[in-house]
């Protein structure tokens, strides 16, 4: 299984430049949460709509739809209001406060990054006066809460682009302007996501079956408990004997118990050559 990215964006206008840049195609007819993906299933995107409830539902939907495993990177990107005049600037978010509860969420910080970093306030209703906050949005808090449970917070990214502030009224925002803001930063965003996907790929081995495992369980009958034991033993065995064909070694075994005994015996007598 390969690492992949799950993009969750609130607005179609935010999604458009990402869909184009990544070559994504619509893959379902769901009118509530449209889902897109590329041909290699490396990038998935869902349009959630505005607000935390929508984002939670969209994450759940795409998670089930795409059979998310632990090494998916989750990205929430979108526009945000700012008290300072930083129109068009991209920020990597490292602390999110949910306005309604003061609860804080912390996306991971494993990626070395030169991007500007900021805290973010997530509100339930559009904030008219945000002069006292760095950045404000309507999705990120619950996005981090739910995606951290799926992939762990280290693989969760929140990126925001300032769309409105003291000199740029929210009333002047149009779909075209929103798309343009995303497009202006798309290369930086994709570069960042790709770096995190590379890190996530370090986790792939955790989910891989040991080489030859499927062939072994097809050849002999293993109970569920034995399958678990077999997997653990084979993981160790294939590391000890990387150039040996396990099927050839096991072919004279009569049943699953003999297979397990053979593997245990081999490992019990294995002396690691550290030189």
């Amino acid at each position: 299984m390969s690492s992949n990215a799950k993009w969750v964006v609130a607005l179609k206008a935010e999604a458009k430049p990402i869909i184009k840049a990544l070559g994504l195609n619509r893959i379902d007819k769901n009118v509530v949460f449209p889902v897109y993906k590329d041909k290699n299933a490396r990038n998935w995107l869902v349009i959630s709509g505005v607000g935390q409830k929508n984002v939670v539902a969209a994450v759940k939907y795409i998670s089930e739809f795409s059979d998310s495993k632990g090494c998916s990177v989750w990205i929430n990107i979108g526009i945000a209001g700012s008290s300072s005049d930083r129109y068009g600037e991209l920020f990597l978010i490292d602390k999110i406060t949910r306005a309604s509860s003061d609860e804080c969420f912390y996306p991971g910080s494993i990626l070395k990054s030169n991007l500007q970093k900021s805290e973010l306030l997530t509100v339930d209703e559009p904030l008219l006066d945000y002069s006292k906050v760095d950045l404000v949005d309507m999705e990120a808090a619950d996005f981090v809460r739910v995606t951290s449970k799926i992939s762990g917070r280290d693989l969760v990214l929140v990126m925001k682009i300032v769309s409105d502030g003291p000199n740029n009224s929210v009333n002047d925002l149009t779909a075209t302007r929103v798309s343009h803001l995303i497009l202006q930063n798309i290369n930086l965003v994709i570069d960042h996501v790709n770096k995190l996907i590379s890190l996530a790929s370090l986790e792939e081995e955790r989910f891989e079956n040991p080489k030859g495992y499927t062939a072994v369980i097809e050849r002999w009958h293993f109970t569920v408990s034995q399958q678990h034991e077999l997997k653990q033993l084979m993981k160790r065995w294939v590391v000890a004997y990387p150039f040996t064909n396990i099927i050839k070694k096991l072919k004279i075994m009569k049943n699953s118990r003999e297979v397990l005994t053979f593997l245990k015996h081999d490992l019990d007598n294995y002396k690691i050559d550290w030189k």
Partner: peptide, 27 residues
Amino acid sequence: RKISVPRYGAIFNKRDQNFKLQKRNPA
């Protein structure tokens, strides 16, 4: 980057973390 937290338990040793990945760039 300095980030204020109420208690260190809010970010240390919670279950939704990845020791192996954090080892790449520990905070």
